[in-house]
């Protein structure tokens, strides 16, 4: 029972990390990422492959940097294009990562995956305390990521990004520096996804490609939408409640006996899809609305750009 609870808490922690990351990318910078599962997988494989050689800390740093670098590349490629292109590229990225993990067996173990991943502090942990240590590790990681995201949101960096997200005219008026900021936010998000993957690998000590399906992406979006785009606190609540619902629905089988295992999992996954759509339609601001921070306090009124830009922006939408 205890170990089941630890598992649930760690899965909530992973979901919260992924959600915080997506909240930076999509919630704050307005850059959509459909390749979340790919970044998490990369992070997990990066630590699985390197941790035995360089230790857990260096391995995690490596995972974060690699994911940040790749996120940056993808967003740089598409930052000047319509949103649709970044979406497409990230969908593709997620799939490609999965294919590579499956097929580059010499490095990744192919479908069998990698096992025996050393946990942090494994040498110092008394027998039987392994789960407790990883639990503390997870909580610390989430707390750090949360504090970091909050600080980022409140910094001038965050305020510019929010302003840009809410009003395309501002982007047009401020031009390039803003694009660079958005790329940076996307990269930071990627790094946190990599860390989530690392936590996943450390906890399970065994990974294979089937653990990183696009459903991770769907959970992350559900968490961000449910929590309210831009709100980190809401996000933690969102991620927590989704995991609880998912865990609770495991027991549906006892209530609806005529349903088989595949149908049950289809039902639960389908519910996530329904949830995403319903929340978007019915509660666009999420369960916890983003704290209202006016960008007027940051931009003087005349920074809103000349009229022609507005006309263009609207022409583009039409």
């Amino acid at each position: 029972m205890i170990s089941y609870l630890v598992t649930v808490v760690i899965f909530v922690a992973i979901a919260a990390l992924v959600g915080l990351a997506l909240n930076l990318q999509w919630g704050l910078a307005g850059l959509v990422n459909f390749g979340v599962s790919g970044f998490v997988a990369l992070g997990a494989y990066a630590v699985a492959i390197t941790a035995p050689h360089v230790g857990w800390l260096a391995a995690m740093a490596f995972a974060a940097l690699m994911c940040a670098g790749l996120s940056m590349l993808l967003s740089l490629l598409t930052i000047r294009l319509e949103e649709n292109y970044l979406a497409i590229v990230t969908i593709g990225f997620g799939e490609i990562v999965r294919i590579l993990l499956l097929n580059e067996g010499w490095l990744t173990g192919g479908a069998l995956g990698i096992s025996g991943i050393p946990r942090p502090f494994a040498g110092m942990t008394p027998a039987g305390w392994g789960d407790g240590v990883i639990l503390v590790f997870a909580v610390v990681l989430v707390t750090a990521a949360f504090a970091f995201s909050e600080a980022l949101v409140r910094s001038p960096f965050g305020r510019v990004l929010r302003a840009v997200r809410d009003d395309p005219t501002v982007t047009a008026a401020l031009g390039k520096p803003v694009l660079a900021l958005r790329v940076r936010a996307f990269a930071v998000g990627g790094a946190i996804m990599g860390l989530a993957g690392a936590l996943h690998a450390f906890f399970l000590t065994y990974i294979d490609p089937s653990q990183f399906t696009p459903i991770i992406t769907a959970y992350a979006f559900m968490a961000v939408i449910a929590g309210g785009r831009g709100s980190n606190l809401g996000l933690i609540l969102g991620a927590g409640s989704i995991m609880l619902i998912l865990e609770a629905t495991r027991f549906l089988k006892d209530i609806i006996p005529w349903i088989d295992g595949v149908q049950l999992s289809a039902l639960r996954l389908g519910m996530i899809g329904v949830g995403i759509v319903l929340m978007l339609i019915l509660r666009p601001q999420g369960l916890v609305a983003e704290p209202k921070r006016r960008y007027g306090e940051f931009f003087p009124k005349d920074a809103a750009g000349p009229a022609p830009n507005r006309a263009l922006a609207e022409g583009g939408k039409a």
């Binding site: 459909f34 329904v274 978007l280």
Partner: peptide, 25 residues
């Protein structure tokens, strides 16, 4: 806007895929 539509289409995709899975395994 298109980002919202994109995210919604991901939700729709999940629903359709799992309707198929529910019905046919």
């Amino acid at each position: 806007g298109s980002i919202t539509l994109l995210v919604a289409s991901m939700g729709v995709s999940l629903v359709i895929e799992n309707i198929c899975r529910f019905a046919f395994g």
